[in-house]
Design a protein around this nucleic acid. Structure first.
Length: 576
RNA sequence: GGUCCCGUCGGUUAGUGGCCUAAGCCGCCGCGUUGUCAGCGCGGAGAUCAGGGGUUCGAAUCCCCUCGGGACCGCCA
């Protein structure tokens, strides 16, 4: 006999029907003459009840937690007062006609009901048990619903789902590659793609026009709560479009996703340039939920008598509306700012009767008034001020703003999406002592900035954009370079000789000589997006079989050693 | 590569130099229980205190190393 209903589907509409439910024993309650068994499947629970003389009584008497059972039985209404409002099927129960025990189970290594507190590596080792928990089951169902909605959206909009290789070529720039030794070409290696970036650009040259893929990407960098070695991207590329078309389409995609899966209507996304984001939030991924933006006080401070403020190139304020901190908190914040690299932190407590200020020795009342006015501070507010020569004071102020909001529970709820645009094209790599691409080397510069490519490359803006949600970077994209000459100039700005560029990206430069369309795209971190949608703290909660923070898989015990024979086949020997 | 935290019955916690023959709760096993749903009652089993080395009359407890786990910094175009 086969399953006729899922557990949580059963309700008063099935009264009197004979059904077949199957699943795992969640819990057994034995009253001697009366046995209750909760059967669990991926939808939830249903209660089975049997009295002595019931044809399934002896089987139900011997089942234990996590046994696998199939129950044919009749749905009946629970007696008066015995309804369980916490269960979807709580109005009814099933009286067995026949009970089959398919599998027994050893005592589970941890209690499913208190798994939240159990060491995660143990749960990963027994992931197949952990997955039976409603929370994880729900996350994987959410993942499936999301994938379906996303695929349908792209299908409706004329995109082609095209697969790209997992065995690719190692490329310079970017993250550390996962290498795969070649058997057929001794001493050579494939690399697992850090993203399908180059392939999707070649698809545009190939005329496929609108491409998307739910693709695995691989980066051999240290893991974090929101980072795994391998992760899933929603990868998109389009030809013959302007930036606006891409941004509004992707906004539609997310709106469609949230409406379909979470029944949430998203507000239009906020837009700001990278420069605005840095000035207002000290971050390229602002969390708009964490209170008001930073306040630039540089101009106002010019007039005060204290050189620490008046002479500083940057003076930034964090205003806490209607908050009166304790002395201990103030000291803690000063220490926090110092630890973060600030030279100091000045605080002003704006009270009805006057102002208390940590720098009252140096600031006359008139100075203080000028600053409070510039910050639009009202009595009851507290103003924190950082100053310095380096633009980094904005970043320090931004982190302070965020951690204070968290500390004080001032993070608002909601889905605060925004676009950050016009990122710098380059950033300075201290490690390699050269320019590096901020996004990737195929990003189109703002053409008006191109004449500064040699004289002031760090000021060159790019036509790149990010989607940010609640302080998390969800997606990154750009219009791409499709002109070989511009691409060559970028490579050389990155310190790559023409010969080197030819050697590493010759195939791409060559492709662009055979008719490259203008194109651009974006890639979303699907796991992070799902993590936020599921309301969890780690992307491991939305991945069926994740790895630990050190990149181990406790379930398969990967990575593992391999035999000498296997090594020899791929022409490797281990260094001692 | 770095900083910090953690490792005690199957799970989760207590124990921070002698009172530890290592305690509680959940789970497990046995008996009893006809309306439970975190079932209840009674009884029982279960721990070389992650591993190794050291200090000490004496170590779960202090020190060192290794292994494993977590968070963060670096890194993640």
């Amino acid at each position: 006999m086969a399953r006729t209903h899922y557990a949580a589907e059963l309700n008063a509409s099935h009264l009197g029907k004979t059904v077949f439910v199957a699943g795992w024993v969640d819990h057994r309650r034995d009253h001697g003459g009366l046995i209750f068994v909760d059967v669990r499947d991926r939808t939830g629970l249903v209660q089975i009840v049997a009295e002595p003389g019931n044809p399934g009584f002896l089987e139900l008497d011997r089942v234990r937690s996590e046994y696998v059972v199939g129950i044919e039985g009749v749905v009946r209404k629970r007696p008066q007062g015995m309804v369980n409002p916490d269960l979807a099927s709580g109005d009814v129960e099933v009286v067995p006609v026949a009970v089959t025990v398919y599998s027994t189970s050893k005592t589970p290594p941890f209690n499913l009901s208190e798994a939240e507190t159990v060491d995660e590596s143990l749960r990963l080792k027994y992931r197949y048990i952990d997955l039976r928990r409603p929370e994880l089951t729900r996350n994987l169902i959410l993942r499936n619903q999301s994938l379906m909605a996303i695929r349908q959206f792209f299908h409706r909009n004329g995109f082609l789902d095209i697969e790209t290789p997992s065995l690719a070529r190692s490329t310079p720039e970017g993250a550390r590659d996962f290498l795969v030794p070649s058997r057929t070409r001794p001493g050579a290696f494939y690399a697992l793609p850090q993203s399908p970036q180059i392939f999707k650009q070649l698809l545009m040259v190939g005329g496929l026009d609108r491409y998307y893929q739910i693709a695995k990407a691989f980066r051999d960098e240290d893991l974090r709560a929101d980072r795994q070695f391998e992760f899933t991207q929603i990868d998109v590329e389009m030809s013959f479009v302007d930036r606006e078309t891409i941004l509004s389409l992707m906004e539609d995609m997310l709106r469609d996703l949230f409406l379909n899966v979470l029944q949430v209507e998203l507000a239009p996304f906020v837009r700001m340039t990278w420069h605005e984001a840095m000035m207002q939030y000290g971050s390229d991924k602002p969390d708009l939920r964490a209170g008001r933006p930073l306040i630039t006080l540089t101009q106002a401070a010019k007039g005060v008598s204290w050189p620490v403020l008046s002479q500083a190139r940057h003076v930034v304020g964090v205003l806490l509306n209607d908050y009166k901190p304790s002395r201990k908190e103030l000291d803690q914040w000063v220490a926090m700012a110092r630890d973060d690299g600030a030279e100091g932190l000045v605080w002003l407590m704006h009270e009805d009767t006057g102002v208390r200020c940590s720098a009252s020795k140096w600031l006359v009342p008139q100075d203080i008034q000028v600053i409070l006015d510039a910050a639009d501070s009202k009595p009851g507010d507290t103003l924190l001020i950082l100053s310095g020569e380096d633009f980094a004071v904005y970043e320090i102020a931004g982190r302070l703003r965020l951690s204070l909001a968290k500390q004080q529970g001032r993070i608002e709820s909601g889905w605060r999406f925004l676009w950050v645009t016009e990122f710098p094209l380059f950033e300075w790599s201290k490690e390699e002592n050269r320019l590096a691409s901020a996004h990737h080397p195929f990003t189109m510069p703002v053409l008006a900035d191109l004449d500064r490519l040699d004289s002031d490359p760090l000021s060159v803006r790019s036509q790149a954009y990010d989607v940010v949600l609640n302080g998390t970077e969800l997606a990154s994209g750009s219009l791409r370079i499709y002109q070989p000459d511009i691409q060559q100039r970028i490579f050389s700005a990155l310190g790559m000789s023409a010969k080197e560029a030819q050697n590493k990206f010759g195939f791409l430069l060559e492709a662009f000589q055979y008719g490259a369309p203008p194109h651009g795209g974006i890639a979303f971190g699907l796991d992070r997006l799902l993590m936020l949608m599921a309301g969890t703290e780690s992307i491991r909660d939305v991945i069926a079989f994740p790895k630990t923070a050190r990149g181990n898989d406790p379930l398969m015990d990967a990575p593992s050693e391999v035999s000498e024979h296997q090594l020899a086949e791929v022409h490797l020997s281990l260094r001692r």
